[in-house]
Nucleic acid binder design. Structure first.
Lengths: 220, 220
DNA sequence: ACCTGAACACCGTTCAAGT
DNA sequence: ACCTGAACACCGTTCAAGT
């Protein structure tokens, strides 16, 4: 097991709340990675026995749901009237991607765990409301809702993977052994896939999707 | 810790190879989930001590890379000349999504672990070759390469999450407590997001992306 | 070269007990 | 109501030893 910084026992030891626990859990994940989050380590960080946490969460799954809610608090939900509907949606999607950038170890939770708490329903509602305001009927709203969700989830994860060090991987990497003549197309494209280009690539994909949305909205 | 079927000790106990180990690992993941894959359980399944596996893989990370290669064997790579370039790409992307459907517990490996083995380079090469054949220069190929990768990765994960039971989640789910008047847009769209619609939704998103690719290809 | 077995430092969770 | 402490059934990996 790799790098895990010594856990700083909280001096304050304020009374435990779900919010404080989720906050500490996210801090631990941000610092040391998702695998480093354990009930024992989290307890230690909060100055408490691991089992104390079970008084606030039924188990680790519920704790992770609370961390997801904390993450989603950082997304800027579409607010009715603040801007034209599709602009609201785009801003929201861009803010969602920032969660991936700011919490590379935690973001994956948002892609493989279901959204099923009150606050996540609120997010869906604001998102779908903006799509309705843009003129999409429910079937079409469902399609663009999923398309955008797929895109921003996949982009977040892929960009994190591109940025991450992966010490446990099979040694031999694209950077170290240049593709050369065996992989000419890879060699030609690789320079355009550097980390510094990922923001522009993300926006390009959004352009493609929003172009289609504008056209679909104009058709009705 | 949930359901883990008793491990069937292999009768044959053929000599250990990387391929046989990766195969058994994938079978274990398919049956019981990614968290159920442990070196100990895998050893037992193969009729061998856990430590024997370390003679073939440096650690669990390398083993997971081998499982990824096994998964990617199920993708149908674009083959030059078999069809027009964009059709080749679309067929490949659709076959990639089938990996998610067929290996819901393992697919996530392909989204958060980097591709950095020979066989994954081969996949990149065939993919990018088809994009080059379609007429895209390297910068544009890079953009559509990522766009498609984001989409198919995100779609695979999201569809898996939609289909999966999640016993450790916070109880209260969209299906159980109908949104009603608090979430009217969710209520309107939810019927169109049922599992049986996910295939059509995936194809809709591909239509959007390939429409843009056709237009971009025509411009040169 | 390939595998074993004991050991080390971890996990999530149950359960009975304390205050 | 909230927390502790011991216990149970697990982890990945190191290391020395066997063949």
């Amino acid at each position: 097991m790799p790098r895990r910084t010594p856990v700083r026992r909280s001096a304050a030891k304020a009374t435990l709340t779900r919010e404080a626990i989720a906050e500490a859990a996210l801090a631990l994940i941000d610092a040391d990675g998702l695998e480093a989050l354990s009930m024992r380590r989290l307890g230690t960080a909060l100055g408490v026995e691991a089992m104390a946490l079970y008084h606030h969460f039924r188990g680790k799954g519920e704790l992770l749901d609370a961390v997801m809610e904390r993450l989603l608090d950082e997304a800027e939900l579409p607010v009715r009237g603040s801007a034209p509907p599709l602009e609201r949606v785009r801003h929201f999607v861009e803010s969602y991607r920032k969660i991936a950038i700011n919490h590379p170890h935690a973001f994956i939770l948002l892609t493989y765990r279901r959204f099923n708490t009150e606050r996540t329903f609120e997010l869906y509602e604001r998102f779908l409301e903006a799509l309705a305001d843009a003129g999409f009927d429910p079937p079409l709203a469902a399609r663009f809702f999923r398309l955008l969700g797929y895109y921003v989830g996949g982009a977040g994860l892929a960009d994190i993977a591109s940025r991450a060090a992966q010490p446990d991987a099979t040694p031999v990497s694209l950077e170290k052994s240049p593709p050369g003549e065996r992989y000419p197309c890879v060699a030609a494209v690789a320079p355009h896939l550097r980390v510094r280009n990922l923001d522009a690539i993300f926006e390009f994909g959004l352009d493609v999707i929003f172009e289609a949305m504008k056209k679909a909205a104009a058709r009705r």
